[in-house]
């Protein structure tokens, strides 16, 4: 049997995050969100609820939108992860981020990294979503400040 098939409390994982490859030893009990924030110092992804409800921790793993508090870091071994830090090139915002700014789609900004990743995943799969599809695409993300309307407008603008 391969080493990965032998139960162990920690293991060495290789993960690509925003195009950069990392090899780290991690405890099996470490959630992906803590690996990103504490081990890699990528603090853009936030922890809101830690129960899979709020979506502030949303990242894209191998092209799939997930909540990184609902996944172990060891489960991401061999995967490619995208976080909010990977969106902008150098100092230039991508159109979606610019649309969030233009439409005042954030107040405190706590939910914003997760909203941006959910909207990114949505627009990749469906570049011109209907209004209902935008709402459904953001369903897993809670915002305590904006009332959602400006977020919705920003995603709509970015899809036009």
């Amino acid at each position: 049997m391969e080493a990965s098939a032998t139960p162990a409390t920690s293991r060495t994982i290789t993960v690509e995050v925003n195009g950069e490859s990392y090899e780290r030893e991690v405890d099996a009990r470490k959630l992906l969100i803590h690996f990103l924030r504490d081990d890699l110092d990528l603090t853009g992804s936030h922890i809101g609820c830690d129960t899979g409800n709020c979506g502030a921790c949303s990242v894209i793993v191998d092209g799939t939108l997930v909540k990184s508090c609902m996944m172990l870091a060891v489960q991401a071994d061999g995967s490619s992860v995208e976080t909010v830090e990977g969106l902008a090139n150098e100092d230039e915002l991508v159109p979606l981020q610019q649309a969030f700014s233009d439409h005042h789609a954030l107040q405190c900004g706590y939910c914003t990294p997760g909203m941006l990743m959910s909207a990114t995943a949505l627009l990749r799969e469906n570049p011109h979503p209907s209004e209902l599809e935008i709402k459904k695409g953001l369903q897993g993300n809670i915002c305590r400040c904006t009332g959602y309307w400006n977020i919705f407008e920003a995603v709509k603008a970015a899809s036009e």
């Binding site: 098939a5 139960p7 162990a8 099996a28 009990r29 470490k30 172990l72």
Partner: peptide
């Protein structure tokens, strides 16, 4: 932080 646990794939 979860309680310590083993993992195998």
């Amino acid at each position: 932080l979860l309680r310590e646990v083993e993992y195998a794939r």
